[in-house]
Nucleic acid binder design. Structure first.
Length: 874
RNA sequence: GCGAAAGUGGCGGAAUUGGUAGACGCGCUGGAUUUAGGAUCCAGUGGGCUAACACCCGUGGGGGUUCGAGUCCCCCCUUUCGCACCA
């Protein structure tokens, strides 16, 4: 018997939904109805198409959206494309194809794939960040940012990537290489647009508290913002009148223990404080530091290096002369790029002081500074001058007192510092939003609103030049324009915005996608915002989610939005890995090597490289905690599921899965694999399993021979109603808790039970089909229709479970003797305690244990358990 | 190094407030059906010991609390994911 006709069914219902605009969200929703804005992170439409990771989150949100619709909730569930970005441009450089063309083709493919999966998006609201009608508003937001002084230009050292021909943001460069492509990057000062996200640091921090987000994601954002409280302190340079070194410290209370200072190699004052005889050594050190990559600097962190500058500073608290060093363990990018070193109470300073034999002076009691730095709390010692004393104070009081003293004497002030830095907002690319800015006499002028959108011109070549000006600089008749305000000749900004720009506010445009008067209608915004459920990958935990929150807060200040936060609830779907692979290792001569002797492709005993071979799972046996070859148990193999990648060849293509098993099976499997948020390996036989389940559902209700409906007109039995209502309760609660895997398991259990019935009454079949609907909508629609309904089940009422049907005549209760189960008894749920205990004692096996024992205690938890605590039992 | 999460059968994973560990699925075994294969249906499937009942052991390891612990507490091990000289 072949599978149920899923190909025909899925096509039929996708066409039906399209023709009937089933999932269209009304322009003006019913204000009295509850609403749910259920949003997926929109994808970048890559040339490779959808991978199986996409439908995971999308299926979860689709189940929610369909479930809510059936509960009479107004649902907004849209989809769009984050379509600006490098790959299309790089493809253009290679082939000369316009990125617009590539982008359109990729989007068409993505849309086709998503429609094939039966997701209930309102396609009328589809948006595309590369559409001028869309990016007009991205530009409009930039004007607002500029107006509020939040967009500015700065000449700063930035990461320039020669291979990509662009500047990248700090967060797009990892270990000195581009996040995408792994090309080497160098630091280089350039004029750039910056967004003053730091002005919102505190609000971005505080806003996190009330969000229903994963705690780890909130923590990541907090770490990224990196707020710390401390003080900026001025240390005069000895012998240089009026010159001071400013340091930032979170422990101003330890200033009496500051026995030396350290400047970052890039610090502006290095050359000034360096004495002639130290000049050569210092310059050499600076050069070495400049050549080290970020990676090398941190990798070698155990080995603190530095050079004495020959110069001295005055510690304002002790008025002692302290030496100034240059060392790369101080970062130019954090704080002021200079520190006061307190080796007695800071691990890094301690290490450095030990190496260069500098004074270690304890100022907090506790620990043993002969052995290690003491970073704990304790009363202060050795911390007094003629004016102020911290001695005897705890850390907090000492900080307060010393900051007051520093401020009173003009040596410094309390200061809040952030790790977060302003957002580098320009890219030297073509395929991005142009800035709505022109330069008149070299001055940046924002364009008036009616000049928007500033559209991209056509290019002759996409080749990035050697100059960081970007490809747009070559289009002379686009660059040279007239300032609409003054009528003067002007030049356009040739940089474009980064890919993050479009995704910072797309969730607002979905609310009112075709409005050409406003970014979003305020009435509609008030109705739909905030996003009630936002599902997307953990990789966006900081960047996208922080940038979007920043823009949202700016739009709040401008009055465009009514909520302080955009995404009330956030969930990350877990990564789907490839199928578990077993790997064995071989030496060059073909002799096997046990996996426990291999590390990073090297035989740890000989240092020889080994070859890796995949082994068929059938030839592997588990032994203890490890896996070995069945024919040679002395040879261990590695068992691991790897991230899907083209190079590994373990990528699963959703199109193939749909062809073999159908979209409903793919959706169901992705949800059945395990908890939504968990990382989990793909298994093709697992897809087989859920596919079999759908076949069973089909055959239960449709006769194989005649294709006729098999549901019976009979009245449902008590047992059938109980099974049904248990299922309704379970599925409802599990959807609410996003436990889709256990909801599916419960439906499978129900179907297994139903196979033992003579017939399935219509009154049981119908609610079941409705419960299945959000998970496997195509087969559910088909069955719903065959059950005699003319309309789609999309807006049918979600079944409600009734307590009365859940009652059981008898409950089975475990009977323990001294905590071990020795039998079970069946009793009425409301049976009195005495009766239950008597029944329990009567159980043959229980009686055997109690025969020679004295019962000291009887425990009865109604409906659950009986436990006899006895001594002297056999 | 710091922080977070997680360790349960051959595998993916279930187990309300502590109350019959292993739901459901995969895989495997046996049976039915079938010309055969496949598909389907039924039964079984943590380990040990059994003819069977029973019994013993079992949720990474060790201790503890409790009538009762996968679940709570303490110590340790492993894995994954963040962050990583942040002064």
């Amino acid at each position: 018997m072949a599978a149920y006709p899923f190909i025909a069914i899925e096509k039929k219902w996708q066409d039906y939904w399209e023709a009937h605009q089933t999932f269209r969200t009304p322009e003006t929703p019913d204000p009295d109805k509850p609403k749910a804005y259920i949003l997926d992170m929109f994808p970048y439409p890559s040339g490779a198409g959808l991978h199986v990771g996409h439908p995971e989150g999308y299926t979860a949100t689709d189940i929610l959206a369909r479930y809510k619709r059936m509960q009479g909730v107004e649902v907004l569930h849209p989809m769009g494309w984050d379509a600006f970005g490098l790959p299309a441009e790089q493809y253009a450089i290679k082939t000369g194809t316009h990125p617009r063309k590539t982008t359109r083709r990729n989007i068409d493919n993505f849309r086709r794939q998503l429609k094939q999966l039966g997701f209930s998006y309102d396609w009328q609201r589809e948006i595309n960040t590369t559409d001028p009608d869309y990016y007009k508003w991205t530009q409009w937001i930039f004007l607002k940012l500029h107006e509020k002084g939040l967009a500015y230009q700065a000449e700063i050292p930035v990461w320039w990537c020669p291979a990509l021909g662009t500047v990248l943001a700090n967060e797009e460069v990892i270990d000195g290489k581009s996040e995408r492509g792994g090309h080497p990057c160098v630091r280089r000062p350039l004029r750039q647009w910056m967004l003053r996200i730091t002005a919102y640091a505190d609000r971005l921090l505080e806003g996190l508290d009330d969000l229903d987000w994963p705690e780890s994601t909130k923590q990541e954002q907090r770490n990224w913002i990196g707020r710390s409280e401390g003080a900026n302190i001025e240390f005069p340079v000895d012998g240089l009148e009026g010159e001071t070194i400013q340091v930032y410290t979170t422990r101003p209370d330890t200033i009496f223990g500051a026995t030396y200072m350290v400047l970052a190699p890039e610090h502006a004052l290095v050359s000034e404080v360096t004495t002639p005889d130290q000049q050569e050594a210092v310059e050499q050190y600076q050069q070495e530091a400049a050549q080290k990559s970020e990676l090398e600097r941190t990798e070698l962190q155990k080995d603190k290096s530095g050079v004495f500058t020959g110069g001295y500073a005055i510690n304002p608290a002790t008025e002692e002369r302290i030496p100034i060093y240059v060392a790369d363990y101080v970062l130019a990018s954090y704080g002021t790029g200079a520190i006061m070193a307190v080796p007695a109470h800071d691990g890094r300073d301690y290490e450095f002081a030990k190496r260069y034999d500098l004074e270690i002076r304890p100022v907090v009691e506790g620990g043993n500074v002969r052995q290690e730095a003491f970073t704990g709390e304790g009363p202060h010692i050795n911390s007094a001058n003629d004016d102020v004393s911290l001695n005897g104070l705890g850390v907090e009081e000492a900080n307060e007192r010393i900051i007051a003293w520093l401020e009173a004497h003009g040596h410094g002030e309390g200061h809040v510092n952030y790790k977060l830095r302003d957002w580098l907002f320009s890219r030297q690319r073509y395929w991005g939003e142009p800035f709505p800015v022109v330069f008149v006499d070299g001055e940046a002028q924002p364009l008036p609103e009616d000049a928007l959108p500033v559209t991209l011109p056509e290019l002759d070549t996409y080749e990035p030049g050697d100059s960081p000006a970007g490809p747009l600089a070559e289009v002379k008749d686009w660059v040279h324009t007239i300032d609409p305000e003054t009528g003067k000749p002007a030049q356009r900004e040739t940089n474009t915005m980064p890919q993050w720009a479009g995704s910072c506010w797309y969730y607002l445009r979905f609310i009112d996608p075709h409005n050409d008067e406003q970014l979003v209608d305020p009435e509609k915004e008030k109705y739909w915002m905030p996003v009630d459920m936002y599902v997307g990958g953990r990789e966006h935990a900081v960047l996208h989610l922080l940038y979007a929150r920043f823009w949202h807060k700016v739009l709040y200040d401008v009055g465009v939005v009514s909520t302080r936060e955009p995404f009330q609830r956030l969930v990350h779907q877990g990564l789907i890995l490839g199928e578990t692979e077993y790997t064995r290792y071989l030496r060059a001569d073909g002799t096997p090597v046990s996996a426990d002797q291999v590390h990073a492709g090297i035989d740890t005993r000989t240092g020889e490289p080994v070859r890796a071979r995949t082994v068929d799972p059938r030839h592997v046996t588990k032994e203890g905690d490890s896996y070995v070859l069945s024919d040679d148990r002395s040879i261990r193999v590695d068992a691991r599921a790897h991230k899907m990648s083209k190079s590994r060849g373990n990528v699963v293509n959703p199109d193939d899965v749909i062809k073999t098993y159908g979209a409903d099976s793919l959706r169901l499997y992705e949800m059945f694999m395990g908890p939504l948020e968990q990382v989990k390996p793909w298994s093709t036989s697992g897809v087989d399993g859920v596919h079999r389940f759908l076949n069973r559902v089909w055959r239960l209700l449709v006769d194989e021979e005649s294709d006729a409906l098999r549901a019976a007109a009979a009245e449902p039995s008590k047992e059938q109603l109980r099974a049904l209502h248990l299922l309704i309760q379970k599925v409802t609660e599990d959807i609410e808790g996003l436990r889709f895997n256990t909801a599916i398991a419960a439906m499978m259990e129900f179907i297994n039970k139903a196979y033992k019935w003579d017939a399935v009454p219509q009154a049981v079949a119908e609610p079941f089909v409705l419960l299945l609907g959000p998970f496997a909508p195509h087969i559910a629609e088909e069955l719903w229709q065959r059950l005699g309904h003319e309309e789609s089940l999309t807006y049918a009422s979600w079944p409600v479970f009734e307590e009365q049907y859940l009652q059981h005549d008898e409950v089975e209760i475990a009977v323990q003797v001294n905590g071990k189960v020795r039998g079970t008894v069946a009793v009425a749920p409301d049976a009195p305690k005495d009766e239950v205990l008597a029944a329990a004692r009567a159980d043959e096996n229980v009686a055997r244990y109690l025969a020679d024992a004295t019962v000291q205690r009887e425990i009865y938890v109604p409906g659950r358990i009986v436990n006899f605590v006895a001594n002297g039992s056999a």
